[in-house]
Design a protein around this nucleic acid. Structure first.
Lengths: 325, 325
DNA sequence: TTGTATGCGTTATCAG
DNA sequence: CTGATAACGCATACAA
């Protein structure tokens, strides 16, 4: 790889001059500018961003820590995050924590060593104090860590309310909520809260099942739901905390010969692509994934530029009625 | 952020010594070693990987260019790629080309500027010569670029053969193949080849529809398949070149009130998670995604270490019979 | 308009 | 066993 020195030599000038034309700083005669351009061309010169980063103390890299990009929600989110990052001149270092504590901690350290300019946290297995001492622009998804770390979420309570009320309005008498592990202190737990509130409020029999700590490990879903149906054959409504869970619920329904939506109704959450792809198409609570990804990048960049940011960023949700409820 | 200088100062030694304990090089007395450790601890020192990269001329970063991580196949693949990269001490810079020529080119340049140690190419919109001149360890998925760039693929011809023969064996009389754009010079085109060969060989009426150039843009699938069904209502077998396409085919079948597998049979490709999640569960050709991701990393690393690598890396496929055929 | 010298944080070479 | 010092590739302050 050619360096700035090679270019300088070839163009018969010093590195300073080359640097100048590279960054359009200060005055340079058109003649030398052309010479430099020519030399750069001939050598296929690309400035070394590592060296630039070192000098500027800024890498233009943002770390993204999520449970796993293979989960459709995070896959779609990551796609948008990377898209907008790139538009703003930033790059994304991808980290799949697999919701493993040790791995998440190692990733954070690794990102700091690599001098990332900020971290987007979609994985939350650590305690609050491990995050607040990071001393780095951060934005989290779905978790409120402290009052000076901005977070992004959908209006979980409202989403839970819409979903639960829909089930009840449609005549369900015994409803279940399938959700991630409530010990994880996530804002998604508000969906659970809303579920309970509505069910109690409207005096409907209800039950909740949680995943284990590895919330996004989809391999556990089927058994979880299977057992739910086995223990409670009379359930006639399900509010699943993700579309993937809802899809598994549909699958298990077919094993139990339960007819959707006649025997049992299902509402999902997220509105990922497959929600409208599977048959029956999933009635769900839509999160604006693209907007959320875009804002994550904007919040990181604002912090990098020392601009003020809103700490609480809650996006409205919408009920998308399809076939399952 | 504390630097090695700060540590040196605090420990009352020079940076040389600190660097030594950091890298376990040369002799150092246990006393000073402890002093240095203590200072590092107190300052929460993390070595600056940017500076290290500059000196070593090695970033330990691998660039990953794919169409989009939101597509389940690439989402799952990326998860494994990142997983194994991390195990080997490498990090992944994520690039979603969206199958845009300009973007792909820009990403390649960007990755070179950032001094990545290698590039994994899952997106192929450019001409051969744009790839062969980049002078960097590369491995591609599903495309043979030149005889000194290793590529990874599944046994596409065998996959196409298995799928097509299954349809015919099960009694289909008029079969269709839905695939990506054949102008893209991908190895996946061998599935098409096998489809044609088998159909001709066994004298079965057949037809093919292709996506446009943006092969992984799933928004076009539904209309494509809808039109296929409209133009050819008598199709009774479909070989889709991905499980996602297969899922869309299922969806459209329900719109046409076609019964699966009685009226029409469908075979997908990939065996991503959702193939066994949707109802009816998709009969498909399985690619070993994890192994392929793992090998991609290993091939890159071997090249980085100047070891010999196999150029052609074709994984066997297996027919997974489920419900749709 | 261009060049010289210095520093970004680290590692390696060579003395001591 | 430890310390100066140069170098990695680039960008800036200051001179000329």
């Amino acid at each position: 790889m050619a360096t700035i020195k090679d270019v300088a030599q070839k163009a018969g000038v010093t590195v300073t001059t080359v640097s100048r034309v590279l960054n359009n700083r200060g005055y340079i005669s058109d003649a030398t500018r052309q010479k430099v351009y020519k030399a750069m061309e001939e050598l296929d010169y690309q400035p070394n961003e590592i060296a630039r980063s070192l000098y500027r103390r800024k890498s233009n890299i943002i770390g993204l820590i999520i449970p796993t990009v293979s989960h459709p929600f995070f896959g779609e989110l990551s796609n948008y995050i990377e898209y907008y990052a790139y538009n703003y001149g930033y790059k994304i270092l991808l980290c799949n924590s697999q919701l493993d504590r040790t791995k998440e901690r190692e990733y954070i350290d690794m990102l700091k060593r690599h001098q990332v300019d900020g971290i987007i946290m979609g994985s939350h297995t650590l305690e609050v104090d491990e995050y607040i001492n990071l001393n780095l622009p951060i934005v989290t998804f779905d978790r409120c860590i402290s009052d000076n770390i901005p977070y992004i979420s959908s209006d979980n309570y409202q989403g839970g309310k819409l979903a639960t009320n829909l089930l009840i309005d449609k005549g369900c008498k015994k409803i279940a909520h399938i959700c991630g592990n409530l010990k994880l202190n996530l804002l998604a737990n508000k969906r659970y809260k809303a579920f309970i509130d509505m069910a109690v409020d409207r005096n409907i029999e209800h039950i909740t099942v949680q995943t284990d700590i590895k919330v996004f490990d989809i391999n556990q879903y089927e058994k979880l739901i299977y057992n739910l149906f086995k223990d409670h054959p009379d359930i006639d409504g399900i509010f699943a905390s993700s579309d993937i869970m809802a899809a598994y619920a549909i699958k298990v329904c077919s094993q139990f010969n339960k007819n959707i939506p006649d025997d049992i109704k299902i509402v999902g959450y997220d509105d990922v692509k497959i929600a409208s792809l599977v048959i029956p198409q999933i009635t769900t609570i839509r999160q604006p994934i693209e907007e959320m990804g875009k804002l994550a990048i904007e919040l990181i960049i604002k912090q990098i530029n020392d601009e003020k940011v809103l700490m609480e960023n809650i996006f409205p949700v919408t009920l998308v009625e399809r076939y399952t409820a």
